[in-house]
């Protein structure tokens, strides 16, 4: 579904991602872990199409298409969704309005009729229920005055409505209490299917107790230094990231 080859990304002339390779197949859940500043969010933003992040080398193929050729909205329409680490507040734009516009824009791209108001309302209500969100959050301005937890739930709620093929969650678990974490995990697990893939960026192994990944990758200083199964997450939790870097250094020196 997704193939990233030798990706190099710079921000303001500083290289952040330094030759990253990653392959994600439909149905898989990949987790990317790594210390602060290692480039995790950069990777997520590049996948979503943020223009200020410049790809200097490499390629990203999504469902056979050159992703880097597509505008952010086209990527969304092709089935990519990124849950923001820091969701943006948009005063004056109702949550429900954003979502209906988004959903209908995606439907239009796929040659489908726009969803009728009542149908949309029914869908939204159902998903709000799953996410345990208060009804009034729909009418409120996007993320404005939401608590940290509400913002993160709102991202997953949007994901549920938009039903992407590939969802990238950027530290959706950070700052959540255990109850909220479970709700988020349930929201993700409810969408897991053989046609859909997830890239879950996290700082803590905790989330992976609830969303069991097929692969865990360690991202350090813009490169994936180690990949493994879910056991790797536990090892990282116990031992930190230092040993991964150490191993990598030795491998280079040998």
């Amino acid at each position: 579904m997704l193939e990233i080859r030798n990706l190099h990304v710079s921000i303001a002339d500083q290289e952040i991602i330094k030759g990253l390779n990653l392959k994600v197949k439909a149905g898989e859940v990949h987790s990317i872990m790594g210390p602060n500043g290692s480039g995790k969010s950069t990777l997520a933003q590049v996948l979503a199409g943020r223009a200020s992040y410049v790809v200097t080398e490499g390629e990203i193929i999504f469902e056979g298409k050159d992703l880097l050729e597509l505008a952010p909205e086209e990527r969304a329409c092709e089935g990519i969704f990124m849950a923001f680490q820091y969701p943006v507040e948009i005063p004056g734009v109702a949550n429900t309005y954003l979502l209906r516009e988004a959903l209908n824009s995606i439907r239009k791209y796929r040659g489908l009729e726009p969803l009728k108001h009542v149908e949309f309302a029914r869908l939204a209500k159902e998903k709000m229920g799953i996410m345990g969100m208060a009804d009034n959050l729909l009418k409120r301005s996007v993320n404005e005055g939401f608590s940290g937890g509400e913002k993160k739930k709102n991202e997953i709620f949007q994901m549920q409505i938009l039903e992407p093929k590939l969802a990238i969650l950027d530290e959706t678990d950070s700052g959540l209490d255990i109850d909220a974490l479970k709700v988020v995990a349930d929201g993700v697990n409810a969408l897991r299917s053989p046609e859909r893939a997830f890239v879950i960026i996290t700082h803590y192994q905790r989330l992976l107790d609830y969303i069991v990944p097929d692969f865990v990758h360690v991202l350090v200083d813009g490169r994936i230094l180690k990949s493994g199964g879910k056991e790797l997450a536990f090892e990282l939790e116990d031992r930190g990231y230092g040993w991964v870097e150490e191993e990598a250094r030795k491998a280079v020196n040998n």
Partner: peptide, 30 residues
């Protein structure tokens, strides 16, 4: 206009012109 907000809307599938219109509309309606 807030470029972060524009990117957020676009990342949800809304084209750039529409995203700008939505934000302008929110500003005036405010």
């Amino acid at each position: 206009m807030d470029e972060n907000a524009i990117f957020y809307l676009r990342s949800r599938g809304i084209d750039e012109d529409t995203a700008r219109e939505i934000l302008l509309g929110a500003f005036t309606s405010g």
